[in-house]
Simulated assay, not measured.
Amino acid sequence: MSHTAPIRSHRKPRRSASTIAMRTGVASGVLGTLAVATAAGSANAAEPVTQTLELPVLTGDLAAQVAQSAEATQQAASNYQLQAARDAAASAAAKEAKKDLAHAKAEATKKAEAARKAAAERATRNAERTTLSTTASSSSSSSSTSTATGAAAAVIAFAKAQVGDAYVSGGTGPNSWDCSGLMQTAFKQVGISLPRVSQDQSTAGTQVSLNNLQPGDILYWGSAGSAYHVAIYVGDGMFVGAQNPSTGVVERPLSYDPPTGAVRVL
């Protein structure tokens, strides 16, 4: 081997121009692709993201449960209204019953009071009947109370002359009378003007005891000021009066219908 033989150089061989051009083209293509991808990514990033939520769909069983719950709620409301109406009706009925009870008690009290008064009046009348019977007996034997004189005799004579006439409510003669009409006309014979009705005639004079009657005294039934009937005492335990439509004007003993009181105008 010759010492002058050429020695291989360690320097890399130069690339050819075509190789460099090819590599440059590949690099340009890669960069172009990246640019396109980057642009596309930027465009996508600018667009808003829309998210859609899907609601669950009611199944047949769930719809039936909802309907059943609504029906139960409506039924409960109806029951509440019905109960409220029943409570209101019961309250009204209780108030009405309480009112009726109070009215019934008041009526019972009124009736009891009327019965008590009626019983007291019957007892009083029975006592007076006994008293008047005694008075009639004593009057028949006493000329001072059985013989009428003066004005009393004239009044009594007129009243007795009407015995047998008819009783007519509101009658003032000459052939029909009511009790106060007969008294008014009888006393008019002697110039005494009496009120027209029994209530007023029972207070027209001086009140006298039934034990001290004199001929010509006006007898009355009921209380003084509210009498419902009048007649005239004629002596000897007798009276004359227009009693009622069935009897007309009659003369009767005091025991026939004992009066309540008497008034003296003569």
Rank of each mutant, 00 (worst) to 15 (best):
A90V: 04
D165T: 15
Y228K: 02
A17I: 15
E71Q: 13
A67L: 11
I232G: 00
V265T: 08
Q75S: 12
L210C: 11
P195G: 01
Q184N: 06
A5N: 06
L55V: 13
A159S: 13
A119N: 04
S18T: 13
Q201P: 15
F187V: 06
E47F: 11
P259Y: 02
T59W: 03
A35D: 00
D178A: 01
L210H: 11
W177I: 08
Q51P: 10
L101S: 10
Q81I: 12
A106Y: 04
K12W: 00
S9H: 04
K98I: 00
R86K: 04
T185H: 08
A46D: 01
G32M: 12
A64G: 10
A46F: 03
A148I: 08
G173Q: 08
A151Q: 13
F187M: 07
R125E: 01
A84N: 02
G261P: 10
T145A: 01
M238H: 14
T24V: 09
A108C: 06
W177E: 02
V30H: 05
A27N: 07
W221I: 07
E96Q: 14
M1V: 08
L34E: 08
W221T: 05
A37K: 08
K160L: 14
R14W: 09
V230P: 10
S18P: 02
A94G: 10
T134F: 04
V26Y: 03
S139I: 05
T260W: 04
T134M: 03
R86G: 00
A37Q: 12
A76S: 07
V49R: 13
E107K: 15
S91E: 04
Q201M: 15
G60C: 06
E71V: 12
P245E: 07
R252N: 11
S69L: 14
A119R: 11
S18D: 11
G171S: 05
A115D: 05
G181D: 05
T73F: 06
A5H: 08
R264F: 13
D257C: 01
T131A: 13
A154Y: 04
A88G: 03
T130E: 06
